[in-house]
Amino acid sequence: MASEHHLIEIAASQIGCQMSFRRSCWSSNIGGCRCECDYTTNSSAGTVSLILCLSSGNTRAPLNARFKFSLLDREVRPVPCRTRACSFQNWSPHEGWEWVCSDFITREDLDRQKYLDDGSFTVSCDIAIKPFTAKATDAFVTVPPSDLHQHLGNLLACEDGTDVTFKVAGGGGTGTFSAHRCVLAARSPVFRAQLFGEMKEGKEAATGGVVIAVDDMEAHVFRSLLHFVYTDSLTETDEELEQHDGDGYMMTAHYKDLLVAADRYGLERMKLICQEKLCRRIRADSVARMLALADRHHCPGLKEACFDFLSSSTNLEEFIETDGFEELTDTCPAVLKGLLDKLATVLIFE
């Protein structure tokens, strides 16, 4: 395997230039392949995009490759929310290839001093290339991806063999849902304790199944929770609604409800997915409630994303004009103290 590591210095002053331009960062021959890296500025949008190009060098053999761009902070550590990766397999060099990381650096980053060092941004670029090796059996046997989630999803939908019923009544919606105790117990430690352990609850119905009341959760949230338990993914309806949610408020509230449900039943992966969704929906008028939610349900990633959002002076000014600051003072003083400590650190470096 051939690999290289490059550091790209981009002056902050170039983001505010009146003219857009494209500039070469470096070029190299890696693993028999010609590799070039450029960056472009967009004067009207105030952004910098990175471009990685591959072309045939002295090899015609198919290749596998991995690439990663990471924005580095003052301590030369990758910023997780500013890291992008890409990979491919069995690529033919003669076809040529280009990867564009659009808007990798934005005008708002000028306010985040922890990303700047002597007036410049530093971006790391990691590349690994190796020849593609096909196994002898590849031409004869093709193993499809696992479809276990589809079978379990169908089992939930058709309700065959169900032995527990949940009667959900909370908020503005009610519903009755049938499920399989073994599946629930295998996926959730809370369901396991509730159905088989010391927390065992519910009563036997006439049919021999167990009936459990859930009085403090809306039916559509519990339906999404069950779907994730069986398929390890959010529902297609959730994804469709997200694409058509104009102002974003409806889906933000929905993902908050899902995060609370995931935390309640110990579904850590679902909780992380909801955190990731909410991190992209932080606004000045919602960041206070996001911080309170993150603190209440132990979501360090969401809390750090909120702190990062408020490290921008523009976002901070908008936040101060809302009622969120007073809400944090009254309901989450410890979170407010953490926020002030973070902002103090940022101001020291400015």
Rank of each mutant, 00 (worst) to 15 (best):
T59E: 05
T345N: 11
G161I: 03
D308H: 03
V164M: 06
T207G: 13
L72T: 02
G266V: 02
A288R: 04
A219C: 02
T142D: 01
G31S: 01
A179E: 01
R181I: 01
E236S: 09
A157D: 14
D138E: 15
S178Y: 05
D138V: 00
Y265R: 08
L258M: 15
A344N: 06
G119V: 02
S13L: 15
V123D: 07
K337R: 13
G209A: 12
D238Y: 14
R77D: 10
F132D: 04
D257M: 15
P333K: 04
T314M: 05
P189I: 02
G119L: 06
M19L: 08
V214E: 05
I129E: 09
R112G: 05
L116Y: 12
L291M: 14
S233I: 03
C17L: 15
R66Y: 15
C17N: 13
K203T: 06
S178Q: 07
D330P: 01
D215G: 13
A205W: 02
Q243A: 09
R296E: 14
V190H: 08
Y249C: 12
P300Y: 08
L347A: 13
F21N: 07
P78K: 04
F319P: 00
Q113D: 09
E327R: 05
D308A: 01
A12N: 04
F307L: 15
R84M: 08
S146F: 03
R269A: 04
F69P: 00
C158Y: 09
A45Q: 14
P131Q: 12
P93Y: 09
R23H: 03
K342E: 14
D38H: 12
E239R: 12
T314L: 08
Y115C: 02
H227Y: 10
G173T: 15
C33W: 14
Q243G: 00
C86D: 14
E201T: 04
D295N: 11
S87G: 07
V143I: 10
C35L: 14
A169D: 10
L310S: 02
M19Y: 11
E159H: 08
L50C: 01
R289Q: 10
D118S: 09
I15A: 08
V48L: 08
C125H: 09
A305Q: 06
A61L: 10
P62E: 09
S286H: 03
